[in-house]
Design a protein around this nucleic acid. Structure first.
Lengths: 230, 230, 230, 230
DNA sequence: TATGAATGAGGCTTCATTCAT
DNA sequence: AATGAATGAAGCCTCATTCAT
């Protein structure tokens, strides 16, 4: 049932008393699990409190009410997946390789953060009403898009990528493919069986997502024949 | 608040008494709106009943309990989006045009059925636990995949499409792009602004989704130069 | 769960249509099972109807309401256990043997009619409010008491029984021991273990109940030494 | 209707605030009355709450649900009738007198605790499903049986009691006669009239129950002639 | 900063019963 | 004589939240 009690174990079982920040973190960690598993209305303050090392009262003390807590958890979720693109050292790669790497990274990154995905799904269910469009969140996808922008530009300059591809749109497309892979795995595998969601299946999808993106931006005459008729 | 009372108006205000099927449909219609707007836990039986021309009691009479109702609504949602592909008369078109048409149709079809999208999101939040993988649902994507299969085959035979593209995977990719467009519009536009979700923006996305798919399957030497450097 | 589906099987699965009396009986049979298993408030009209070969409406048609049905079931229960004493042919036995036989018969008779016992328990829970003290019921214990009276008289005349034993009281005592054996077996065996309720245990209890009664009425000098120190 | 509002009056009308144990007791007291009067399904949480000095909510706070409350009430009922035998100072009496005293005590004790009797009846209706065979309950009849055991032994050693009487069985017999007297008074008096349940009638029954037990265990030659032909 | 006790409002569900045919 | 559809009233229970200490 607990699909992620691995994460639960990272949380310290006992924390020094009088550690406000520790308490806050503890609550947030538990709340993230509960909200992401059960949704905003589905999550239970009682359950969150019970799994916390503090009391229900503290939740109200620190977060005001359920929505306040949810809101902070949502922001936390966005914060958790921040960045990563900057560590890819794309500049050391040729544009083609860089773009592939970026795609695969994004795909994997989503896979490794199902809690985040679920929080975003939940927030969309609620029409995005709780998003504090803080700088925090605003700035989040900046690096990704900037990375894309850089790679695209380099590719265009070297003549391997065609022009006229909008970085934001491309980001949207990569996100769509990576997000859907996690968000809809339950229903998709129910309908079509689980073959796409085995390790092999995911590796294949990851590769093909990258390939789709590459073929989308490569000038046709630079599409390697290797993959041409694979 | 009521974003869709247009649909509500299609529902007959008054129906002949002793019309079980009418009552069932009425409940389902209202319930679909409520569930898709508020989720499983967020929806209120009282609210559903109030917006119905029958009483709360009848919901239990016909559907047993809240989950039973939700389950039927979910199935109904899947049923509602069934088909459409068969009306596209893809056979009359060359493979390239046919594939584009199929992509654009899918993209639009998702846009026109946000309730369905939301029900699927909600069901994924619930780990797909309520899906009766009935023949109803099982059979749903069959036509889409078969259509894809046909088009791919024709394209491969005529030499314009490369081989080695799995129809199921391609369906997955088209679905991802079409689904995400609706499911994540709230958060995405919150972060990046709404330009992608204006009529123009959607037209562009639709075109580019189709193009992405086409470029994915076309043999490079058949990619029209027209779009090559656009 | 069904402890008595043996009885259920005696009930004809299919009955000729337009058989009012058959319908009534069918309802009564099912209702007896439900009431005796679940009590007055615990029994469900829906459940009774479902297990019947007619509809819920018929229950109301024939019995008015739930209490009306219960009342008839109660009377039916009393009717079912009627008599039996007259078949014992006590007159052919000496008083001592006759009394023992009567005791053992009563004890066994109760054991064989747990539904009846449970209905009486239930009615006592309800302070006897539903007993139509009809002649039906009034007359029920007559035979038992008359039988007792006869045996006692014979025994007193022959000098083996002492005088001053009230037949009604003795009936009460025998009833108490026989009734309690069935009515309280659940709690008693929970507390003391089930040894008294095995076949052996019941045989012993039956014998000792009879012995207790006998010793109660026998003149001391007629108590057989056989059992004196057993 | 309220047959026992005498007990109700013992309950303090007003209690210090923030008195958890007081609140629990208050609820239990009221619940005992309601359950014993109406049975498990017949009792109403609303009614219990109304007669309490707290709210319905607190019942759930302390007892979880209706069954949880019932279960605690049942245990409470068993607890209430605990002991008493130890105060009888049977050791100071000769075996015969001691046994008589024990019988009469048991008979009266049952009479004075109709709520307990009713709870046990109700629990038997429910097949003993809610008995937590806790040590509480397990230990309850211990003293009674041990008292019996002691008396029997003394009597046997002094030669007035016959051997071969099982204390558990004898306890069962005394219990049966005492329990039935209370449990079945409603139906019994309906059928046979109330003469057994007047004060005189009860005194007579009490005496005769004791006598029945005595005659069951006394060696015939020790049965006092006084009662021999009474 | 912290907590066990308390709570009002509202949620879901069930029940015996009646209606219209 | 019979029935599927319908129902109001009431039942049990849960929720987020606050109080008193």
């Amino acid at each position: 049932m607990k699909e992620e009690n691995a994460t639960a174990k990272e949380r310290p079982a006992k924390v020094a008393k009088r550690d406000p920040e520790g308490v806050r973190r503890d609550i947030l960690t538990v709340a993230m699990e509960e909200f992401s598993q059960n949704g905003l209305s589905g999550a239970r303050i009682d359950e969150i409190a019970a799994r916390t090392r503090t009391s229900k009262r503290m939740i109200y003390y620190y977060f005001g009410d359920k929505e306040g807590l949810y809101q902070r958890v949502l922001e936390e979720a966005y914060g958790k997946v921040r960045g990563g693109e900057s560590d890819l050292e794309l500049d050391g790669l040729d544009p083609q390789a860089a773009l592939e790497r970026l795609c695969r990274f994004t795909f994997d990154h989503h896979r490794r953060h199902p809690d985040f995905i679920r929080m975003v799904m939940i927030e969309n269910i609620h029409h995005g009403r709780h998003m504090q469009v803080s700088q925090t969140i605003r700035g989040l996808n900046r690096p990704a898009i900037e990375a894309l922008e850089g790679v695209l530009k380099r590719g265009q300059e070297s003549g391997v990528f065609r022009t006229g591809v909008d970085p934001l749109e491309l980001h949207w497309q990569i996100s769509a493919l990576s997000f859907f892979n996690v968000s809809n795995s339950a229903t998709f595998s129910h309908i079509f069986g689980g073959e796409l969601f085995t390790d092999d299946g995911q590796e294949r999808l990851s590769a093909h997502v990258a390939e789709m993106v590459l073929r989308y931006v490569l000038r046709p005459d630079h599409i390697p024949t290797r993959v041409q008729d694979d």
